Simulated scan of single mutants.
Amino acid sequence: MGGRAMVYERRIHERKVPMRDGQILGYVHSTESFGAVDGPGIRFVAFMQGCNMRCQFCHNPDTWKKNVGSEMTTDEILEQALPYRQFWGEDGGITLSGGEILLQIEFAIELFTKCKKIGINTCLDTCGQPFTHRQPWFSKFEKLMEVTDILLVDIKHINSDEHRKLTGYRNENILEMCEYLSAINKPVWIRHVLIPQRTDFDNYLKQLGDYIKTLTNVQKVEVLPYHTMGVHKYHEMGIKYDLEGIEPPAPERVKNAEKLLHVEDYRGYLEV
């Protein structure tokens, strides 16, 4: 393991968990009351603050900075969410998204534990970058999986070198997470952003499609066409936008990606 990775491992193990009145505090970027694309059904979504990766296509660079944002307890999240419970139906519930929620894993465990006690469906939206089998982090992840019903997992790029160019990090540990989730049969929806000149290459799409086929727990695969709706944030924040001039993929390229990823083979989400 490289020096940068070892420093990161030490930091996530030694991180002091913020508390207030005996509850874990989370740093929240924003919330959404009626999320329709963040897991099964209609969902209350808490977008957590902080992310290590610097994805070139990220449309929310304002979520990158850690230990900032609105400080909220798990009870405060539930107080915001529960008035909308009548709209969730049988499939909906609460989703924790990001930023990267696994950077605040203790908060996720506490919130989802409370959710399961009152019968709320729980969904975790993650890119998996913080995942490690090292202790004590892995034990926390195992505990989180006990109270998580489903995960939305973004696989940014199947090739690790290209993944590093695109996000700043390699992908080996992310794929390890996918394989662990498959081993414990935890339901997963996999998402892949299709970006011209970055991810829209048939050889990589075929590799990703073949890789997903090795997993036994995938209920849905989604191709998300790259868009430029977040570019203005980079300009406002004075951040260089590395995909300047790249346009969204043509519809036929989206259909091609869906074919190579075998999207139609994954229908388990219709049974949820």
Rank of each mutant, 00 (worst) to 15 (best):
M1Q: 07
M1N: 01
R4L: 12
M6Y: 10
E9T: 11
R11G: 10
H13T: 02
E14F: 12
K16W: 05
V17D: 05
V17R: 00
V17F: 07
D21W: 10
Q23L: 07
Q23T: 08
Y27P: 06
S30E: 10
T31V: 14
A36C: 08
A36D: 06
V37H: 13
G39F: 04
G39V: 01
I42D: 04
R43G: 13
V45F: 10
A46R: 00
M48K: 04
M48R: 04
C51H: 04
N52I: 07
Q56F: 13
F57M: 05
C58W: 00
H59N: 15
N60Y: 05
T63S: 15
W64V: 10
K65H: 14
K66I: 14
T73C: 07
T73R: 03
I77K: 08
A81E: 09
A81T: 06
Y84Q: 13
Q86I: 15
G89F: 06
D91N: 12
G93P: 04
I94Q: 05
I94W: 05
L96Q: 06
L96G: 06
S97M: 02
G99M: 04
E100I: 09
E100Y: 03
E100S: 10
I101H: 03
I109Y: 01
C115A: 10
K117W: 08
I118S: 13
I120K: 11
T122K: 05
C123H: 02
C123M: 05
C127G: 13
G128D: 10
Q129T: 08
P136Y: 05
K140P: 11
L144Q: 02
L152A: 02
I158H: 03
I158W: 00
E162M: 15
H163E: 09
K165I: 14
R170G: 15
E172D: 11
N173G: 09
L175V: 06
C178L: 01
I184M: 08
V188C: 11
R191S: 08
H192E: 00
D202V: 13
N203R: 11
Y204F: 14
L205G: 05
G209R: 00
G209H: 02
T216R: 05
N217P: 14
V218Y: 07
K220I: 07
V221Q: 06
V221H: 03
L224E: 05
Y226L: 00
G230N: 00
K233Y: 07
H235F: 15
H235V: 12
M237Q: 12
G238S: 10
K240H: 14
K240Q: 12
I246W: 02
I246Y: 10
P248G: 07
A250S: 09
A250P: 12
P251D: 02
P251N: 03
P251F: 02
K255M: 14
L261F: 09
Y266H: 07
Y266D: 09
